[in-house]
Amino acid sequence: MQVNPGEVHAIMGPNGAGKSTLGNVLAGREGYDVESGSVTYRGQDLLALEPEQRAAAGVFLAFQYPVEIPGVNNSYFLRAALNAQRKARGEAELSAVEFLKRVREKLKVLHIKDELLTRAVNEGFSGGEKKRNEIFQMAVLEPSLAVLDETDSGLDIDALRGVAEGVNMLRSPERAFVLITHYQRMLDYVVPDFVHVLSDGRIVESGDASLAQKLEEQGYAWVRDRQPVAV
């Protein structure tokens, strides 16, 4: 599977297909051994990097279950994260003023209220708020590859639309997306360039956005027994 800058790839598949595993492996979560295969990101062996090195290199994972961190203010946390990434890339760190300016721009674009900044990271957030916070973090950190792990799960229609709008705002020729999702719903709003069907850890079918439609109509049964395909 090759993802080029500016492309949006959707990864679909039934429960247990390995969708979240893929997201976690890409971001470097501990507890996964990659026994075969490789991931090359901008010419680098991604799997050899620590999670924070991947982040600094431009990889972002929007979590399926964002973590609550009581007592840690959202904006302080984000500034620390952004500056850690900038430092790792040899860029100058942003001052509090510069950071705030950037953050306010993003809030405006995403139609998110300022109060998000002063709240503790995800503490007491509703499911929708947590996912929106992931999108907000993504906007501030400006990754070149964003992996969204079931960002649509657990959202009502309005929240889903809000999150999808956020993703659309952040689409750009320099940024690629991998959307991991169960349902076609999300793809009504964020139209992917490619759709891949994952089954038992392998891509068994690839196509354009119409593949998602077909899955919605026919379910996963028809792809389940397919052999892996090279894409």
Binding site: P51, A55, L61, V67, A84
Partner: peptide, 17 residues
Amino acid sequence: DAHALFYLRSRGLSEAM
């Protein structure tokens, strides 16, 4: 919490941070 630790590292914070 290993999950929280990973969450923060995935945002670019070093393990120590």
